[in-house]
Design a protein around this nucleic acid. Sequence first.
DNA 1: ATGTATTTGTACGTATGTATG
DNA 2: ACATACATACGTACAAATACA
Lengths: 239, 239
Amino acid sequence: MKKYESIYQDLLTKIEEHKIKAGEKLPGEFELRDYYNASRDTIRKALSLLSQNGYIQKSQGKGSIVLDINRFNFPVSGLTSFKELATSIDRKIETIVICCECIEPDEEIKHLLMLDDNTKVWYIERIRKFDDEAVIFDTDIVNADIVPSLTKEIVQNSLFDYIENKLGLKIGYAKKEITCRPVTSKDQKVLDLKNYDMLVNIASFVFLEDTTLFQYTISKHRPDKFRFSDFARRTKNTL
Amino acid sequence: MKKYESIYQDLLTKIEEHKIKAGEKLPGEFELRDYYNASRDTIRKALSLLSQNGYIQKSQGKGSIVLDINRFNFPVSGLTSFKELATSIDRKIETIVICCECIEPDEEIKHLLMLDDNTKVWYIERIRKFDDEAVIFDTDIVNADIVPSLTKEIVQNSLFDYIENKLGLKIGYAKKEITCRPVTSKDQKVLDLKNYDMLVNIASFVFLEDTTLFQYTISKHRPDKFRFSDFARRTKNTL
DNA sequence: ATGTATTTGTACGTATGTATG
DNA sequence: ACATACATACGTACAAATACA
């Protein structure tokens, strides 16, 4: 592990175990440098990570203050897959794969994923059940040139895990858009909708580190089960 | 302006004016160092900002590639006020202040803002109109010990602007949560709701740089007018 | 109100590690 | 094996904001 990462981890553990309490000041950068036998630069990288992830607030001339993490439960933000998210919740969770097939894309998909004429795509539909209620409907379109083979078992488990750890591809970034949409007849068929007539619609384009677009996902959530938490700094300059 | 900021700005301008096109590589860090007469560290800070804000993708051993900004319209994410957001949209926009008064907080608010017994709060209700339709309903609760005086004119304009530029307070960060809620009779009274029976509910706690909580805001959006865009990196380590 | 010490921020330099092609 | 490019780590000096005597 990188040195600044291990220092980050160590400080994070101390914060999470309340060895350093919320509201208290961290030791200064020079003090930490001596404590960890590191350079100030390395310390600053560790503090920068803590700041970015909402664990501390730095301010010039004063020092770094530990923030209260538990005041609200924390970021589901960022680029996490359903599998990663699921482990952090203490509910009964189940994934049902409706379909997973390699097809010829229609014009709309071809345009969205910027595909040429002989590229196929994986078309994946999955239902997420929380406590035996079908509340999330995910549709993934994956470029089959980049992910050549998929099985029900793989998408049943975790698509991201397979892409990163089995195929060795590096996922770089994603652009997401959250909106609301009226339910369709398809939604009605696969989800337990109660009387809701709208769904929260999360559309994402996922890119590899080399900037190739390889996946488009639509995740539809029943409104009462949707929650998005975010931590935002006023100035993003946590350099 | 800081040197790394001016380099960031210069590169950003070149990207936005397509002097460097999407998909192209930026010059290497050493080349940029010579070009800008800076140190490599300074260049890396500038590139780091570009990366954080979704303008480039760095990758070790390869270089930095310019991303396509215009492919989808860009982050409304982060900590921006309505006023700041409004200027970036080309619609007719109007703010109507329903009320702005200094009151004794009830128990719930006292608890949310962690107030002691003799602290008052500003209670502000505002309606946002897009193209003459009332589609957003904002309620702000502001600690009156921190913001002692407010007027209709101030909140009509921009609350954040007043707090930062007139009072000289430094806003540090915010925690937000987006959920969906059924409409209330109050919502029905102040908004043009058509037939919608749900609203998108954005609750935020806003903190100063010294970590004091000073504002709680609920922003309710009519579902068809709600849109949240996000840019997320797989690994946030843009150090 | 002033100066001094403290703390974080910026800038520069150098060396070495790691991934890519 | 080699060159290239970014990543990590060490160091120094000074600037800017803050706290306090």
